[in-house]
Amino acid sequence: MAFLPDPITSPQNPRIKNLLRLQQKSSERRAQGLTIIEGLRELTIARGAGVAVPAVFVCPELAGPERQAQLRELLADGDTEWFPVSKAVFEKVAYREGSDGVLALARPPQLSLDDLQLPADPLLLVLEAVEKPGNLGAILRTADAARATAVIVCDPRTDLFNPNAIRSSIGCSFTVPTVATTRETLLAWCRRHGIRTYAAALTEQAVAYTSCDFRGPTALVMGTEADGLTPELMQACDQTIIIPMRGAIDSLNVSTATAILTFEAVRQREG
């Protein structure tokens, strides 16, 4: 691990300006093949998943000696550059309140569908055109908790490793194989692997999710909160399913709905 001896004290420092670009622009993240992880807990999970960390920016005043010691141990076996940063500068690049003074550059994995190692009965969570990083992060937490095989995003409107998605996932962006693809590619791939697709959608043909058998190769397909699934994807799925609503509201937040369906599949498989 290489250490920069003097702290960065100017927000005009080129490395700090690059951090801000990476935070704000998905095009920069794609071009550089990097993303940002804030927080020692999230970074620890990412390192446990084998993610490379080229650089870490640490505010000694916020991190404190104990957290810095933990960080040194965590990154001891890599080629990470260590940059101390003044509190004033760190607060300009930190994107959450109450930061612990740790922010890292990471190289996220770039997976395709063919990279996925499928078990005999995979459980896949499919999201169409997800645009809110917070929802993506929450669903990745569910996928990690349920030991889902993968999260697949069709035609995403946010990049999979948006820093806010990583924050919402508490680092589970790196523990669950995550793939971006197109609707057509996904459907052909599911057919090729014998994966049955269940579209969460309110249609006349929809059945209650509890009446379905999710024990075989299964893909749970979710749409956006605003528009739901596109007609093309909904009609191409094998079955439409619903979570019956008992009150005045007719739908749930997509991350909540995904969690309900996912853990019903887990319950059936464990039973």
Rank of each mutant, 00 (worst) to 15 (best):
Q12K: 13
I16G: 08
R21T: 14
L22Y: 02
Q24R: 15
K25A: 14
E28D: 12
A31G: 06
G33L: 03
G39R: 01
E42N: 15
T44F: 05
I45E: 11
R47V: 06
R47S: 07
G48F: 04
E61W: 08
E61K: 12
E66A: 10
E66C: 02
Q68D: 02
A69I: 01
L71T: 05
E73A: 11
D77N: 08
D77P: 07
D79M: 09
P84H: 08
V85E: 09
V85H: 09
S86W: 03
K87M: 11
F90L: 00
E91W: 01
R96M: 12
S99R: 08
S99P: 10
G101E: 10
G101I: 00
A104E: 00
L105Y: 05
Q110E: 13
L111C: 10
L111P: 10
L113M: 01
L116E: 02
L116D: 06
L118P: 07
P119A: 07
D121W: 05
D121N: 15
L124K: 08
L125I: 15
L136V: 02
I139M: 15
L140A: 00
L140D: 02
R141K: 10
A146G: 12
R147A: 15
V153M: 12
C154L: 13
T158L: 05
F161W: 13
N162S: 12
P163F: 09
P163M: 07
N164Y: 14
R167L: 07
R167M: 04
S168N: 14
S173Q: 06
T178C: 13
L187E: 06
A188D: 14
W189S: 07
C190L: 15
R191I: 01
G194N: 05
G194Y: 03
I195L: 06
R196C: 07
A199P: 01
A200C: 12
A201F: 05
L202T: 12
T203K: 12
E204I: 00
V207L: 11
Y209I: 02
T210E: 15
D213N: 13
R215M: 03
A226Y: 11
A226W: 08
D227N: 15
L229D: 04
T230L: 09
A236P: 02
T240Q: 03
I241F: 15
G247V: 00
D250W: 03
L252S: 10
N253I: 00
V254E: 03
V254S: 01
V254Q: 00
T256M: 12
R267I: 01
Q268W: 08
G271M: 05
